[in-house]
Amino acid sequence: MKVIDLVQQLNLKVFTPGIELDRTVSGAYVSDLLSDVMGHAREDQVWITLQSHLNVVAIASLKDLSAVLLVKGIVPPDEVIRKAEAEGIVMLGTLEQTFDVSGKIYKMLV
């Protein structure tokens, strides 16, 4: 599955239009604790979170995550979007809460 499939099937908002949506999604990791993500998320996973500051982009980039998905209608600040575009990190958004969107992504992946 690719990032574009998630975007289309779940009708996600794309905050970083400058970046291709062709990266592979091998799974997802759900956490709002940055050290937990740093220690346990894996390459090519989508990170589902309500954190939307600059360090989220840094971690997504260091961990080679395929995208960051912000829940509950959270909109990242402009500086975060700019950094994400510079680092090639796709930032996505949904109005749904974490459990609901995670369940849908889980179904798509298995």
């Binding site: 050290s35 740093m38 360090n55």
Partner: peptide, 15 residues
């Protein structure tokens, strides 16, 4: 509030 402070950093280093 930023999501740091889980107390997992040093254990992550050790591992």
């Amino acid at each position: 509030e930023m999501g740091f402070g889980a107390g997992m950093g040093l254990p992550n280093i050790k591992k």
